[in-house]
């Protein structure tokens, strides 16, 4: 983004040139690969070392990583693990443990993770992080069910991790760009708007030349059916009458 920041005032740069300069910046890689390895919301280690968890133990980290990946897995695009969501969750929980975040979150996470590995061992004979993907998904399905089919400790853990995985993944560059194709905040010379004929010509179901609407309009106009408050009705009949009686959008021809 360095080039963009160098142009501090577009009004002082010829517009065409500004767009060239800034357009080039917009398509350039935003960050080096190294920076991308760390989740954007997680501060680097103070000594510049590789990331290591601030709150979770190594076993807990493995479980959180597996949970996040099971919630948003790698498909045709990278999943939560590649996006560093476990780093983000660790950071958020460590902040909560330091008093900056929801009270009770660290305790709920720790208790939930202990429950998770116990339950996984009982069901599959190994801790959650080492269970096969279908096994992990099977346990999550029991936690996600309505009503849940597992202990409250596990359900609470799942909901916390799911919420944090969503915010961590879809705020990361992988989640925004690779997964959703985000390419906003650009300098454009035109805004094209919708150019899809199937949208511009779209009509609500049954709205075109409906004999039912014509029949009911006639009934209301004849007084056989009382005109009521429009939202008590269904089918847009009153609104059709209003539209006919008060054609909208007359053009501006005089002052004002």
């Amino acid at each position: 983004m360095g080039k963009e920041e160098a142009v501090t005032d577009l009004t002082r740069v010829p517009r065409r040139r500004a767009l060239q300069v800034l357009g080039a910046a917009a398509v350039a890689p935003a960050v080096a690969e190294g920076a991308r390895a760390l989740h954007p919301l997680v501060p680097p280690q103070p000594d510049g070392a590789a990331w290591s968890p601030r709150f979770f133990t190594a076993d807990e980290t493995a479980a959180v990583e597996a949970l996040a990946e099971a919630i948003i897995p790698e498909t045709d695009t990278p999943g939560a693990r590649a996006a560093g969501v476990h780093q983000y969750i660790d950071w958020m929980v460590s902040r909560a443990a330091a008093g900056d975040g929801p009270a009770g979150l660290p305790e709920a996470m720790r208790a939930g993770l202990a429950w998770l590995d116990r339950r996984s061992a009982a069901l599959y004979g190994r801790r959650f992080a080492d269970a096969a993907a279908p096994e992990q998904a099977g346990l999550l399905a029991r936690l996600a069910a309505d009503p849940p089919r597992e202990d409250a400790a596990g359900v609470e853990l799942f909901r916390h991790v799911r919420r944090l995985t969503i915010s961590g993944y879809y705020r990361s560059e992988i989640g925004m760009r690779d997964e959703l194709g985000y390419a906003g905040k650009q300098y454009l010379t035109e805004f094209e708007g919708c150019a899809h004929e199937h949208h511009l010509d779209w009509e609500p179901d049954g709205a075109e030349g409906s004999a039912e609407i014509d029949r009911r309009v006639a009934a209301i106009e004849s007084g056989a059916v009382k005109l009521e408050r429009w939202n008590d009705m269904r089918g847009g009949i009153e609104r059709e009458i209003l539209r006919r009686e008060r054609p909208y959008g007359r053009r501006v021809t005089t002052g004002g």
Partner: peptide
Amino acid sequence: QTTGVNVAELLPGHEFGAGFK
């Protein structure tokens, strides 16, 4: 104009996995 975070949070229920994504 919105973010994937908003979209995911607006979906009802507690979905997860490749289908959710």
